[in-house]
Design a protein around this nucleic acid. Structure first.
Lengths: 314, 314
DNA sequence: CGTTCTTACGTGTGTCGTAACGATC
DNA sequence: GATCGTTACGACACACGTAAGAACG
């Protein structure tokens, strides 16, 4: 059995069982990949593929089991080359971060500036996506680290490091009648058209649940993926806004009124996640450290002491 | 990077950093292994080995990390071939069981008879050892399954399936004065010279602790690794014996008196263990099932219902 | 008839074994 | 000087690419 053969198997499965496409992706010609698959089958002595004539259309039970283990093998091989790179050129490489708009816009900038100062040679890529997409990206090794709030944390194939907690605030145009209510209640919020995040995004799920739990149903006239869009429509008088507290800029948003709503909604926890068993390069670890420090600076960090212990887990 | 190279690395580390011995173990000549190691280093671009002149004497930090991941790779490759074998010749292979004397002598026989009936083509090997050795054997893949009571269960690199619980009994020559005491107390036991298991064997550790906890120190005049030896010396009048209850044969040991002691000592749990992440072949799974059934038959089994869930864990 | 995989064949790389040399205890 | 490792070299194997052929829609 050879690594090439396992690579061909995995690539085949990932490309919808098209040998040609797999070959293309592997920078090989198609007969080579065919041979890999044939030799792998021969080496194991049992059919791995379901065939329609000559076409491969799926995996036998044995094939599925082999595929799972083959992925592990290749993941570990990837870890080995990562170890190598880490010692050859500690300060060079690519850091692929998957995150939501909110993080990218309001939390990551200072972290990335600090990181760039420490590792000027590391190329940083920011890939945006929904929390669900981020989980999938992390698991498929399309990003190195996922930074987000929802969805992550349930998948036990991911190691997640709680970083900081946050809650929502209300934003309105100045002089809005709602500002007079003290304290502001869930019911009061429902009296006005609301603008907030898209479902499944930046705490929207638990926000909706909070209303639903007491039988309230806010009239959401617009939902957006990021706070900037929400602010824009709040400014235009379309309704009141509920956004992550940290998305409010005291300077730039001087034309809006803000009220804390942390007494109404559960606290959300933003985490850094990466696949269990994956080797974390030093500069990646450094990024995580910087992110946690930034979290502490926001004042709602998870504390720095415990970080080491959690990170040492794998 | 090639699997050969990783194999050479792992074998080198396992043979005390002797390239010649590693080569011998791999059925290769030394220059071949030397080349593997050199190419691996070259592929990763960083030194992996500490050298005294030409001799390899250890691993660099990078080398140690690579070694860990290389072991994972080879373990997964092993799993792949195991999957293959399982589908090619489901009922053929080798089942290597590591266990203590007590299990081998008093618990396993009926299980193995049933197993042999189900899988006559499978070669069964019984390797005896101390619980600590068994853990090491399981982790080093020198046995497939470890069946024992102590030590196992703490190592979280092992998956352990609780199978049955047992306690001790007292054995004496007929007419021994101790038999009159009802109930028998820890203090009473200490009045006579005692013969029991060697420390770290078959529940001896927690037995000693039970005495120590109440400030008692039994006079152990002889300690042995198995109940047969203990019985022999009890028969010769050397002292009273404390053995695992299931080691008492109502027929063969008619010349000895037995008293249950489960009111004095904690219950022990015997487990089946195998390395986490290791593929369990079908006949191995079948053996585990049979063992659990036997445990139920003894009457102190852990119940069969939960077994499936635990087994499904990996 | 294009797409897709297989078979056949040649070339070049590379792996392993043999053999001779160097280093270390 | 015996052991252990490296270097050198040749034979064999094999992996990949090219090219032509067969099945499928």
């Amino acid at each position: 059995m050879e690594l090439r053969q396992l690579r061909s198997l995995v690539t085949l499965a990932d490309s919808g069982f098209s040998v040609s496409r797999a070959a293309q992706q592997l920078h090989l010609v198609q007969p080579a990949v065919s041979q890999h698959l044939r030799l792998l089958e021969a080496a194991l002595g049992t059919p791995l593929f379901l065939r329609h004539g000559k076409r491969l259309v799926g995996l036998t039970e044995a094939g599925q089991q082999v595929l799972r283990h083959a992925r592990s093998v290749l993941a570990e091989v990837g870890n080995i080359v990562a170890v190598g790179r880490d010692h050859v050129e500690e300060a060079r490489g690519v850091l692929r971060i998957g995150t939501t708009h909110t993080q990218a816009r309001y939390v990551l900038p200072p972290v990335l500036i600090a990181f760039k100062r420490a590792y000027p040679e590391v190329e940083v890529q920011i890939h945006q996506g929904t929390p669900a997409q981020l989980v999938e990206m992390a698991l498929a090794d399309r990003v190195d680290l996922a930074v987000c709030t929802e969805a992550v944390g349930e998948h036990d194939a991911l190691i997640t490091l709680p970083s900081y907690r946050w809650n929502r605030c209300l934003i309105t145009t100045p002089g809005h009648p709602l500002l007079q209510r003290r304290p502001i209640s869930l019911g009061a919020l429902c009296e006005y058209p609301m603008i907030t995040y898209v479902f499944g995004f930046t705490g929207r799920t638990s926000l909706s649940q909070t209303f639903a739990k007491v039988g309230l149903h806010p009239r959401v006239v617009l939902s957006a993926a990021d706070a900037d869009v929400i602010k824009t429509y709040v400014r235009s008088g379309m309704g009141i806004g509920i956004i992550a507290d940290l998305a409010f800029h005291t300077e730039h948003d001087r034309d809006l009124e803000r009220r804390d709503l942390s007494h109404l909604f559960p606290w959300e926890v933003t985490r850094v996640a990466y696949p269990r068993g994956k080797y974390v390069r030093r500069f990646q670890q450094r990024f995580i450290d910087l992110f946690q420090q930034q979290a502490d600076r926001i004042g709602r960090g998870w504390g720095a002491g415990r970080l080491g212990a959690v990170v040492a887990e794998p």
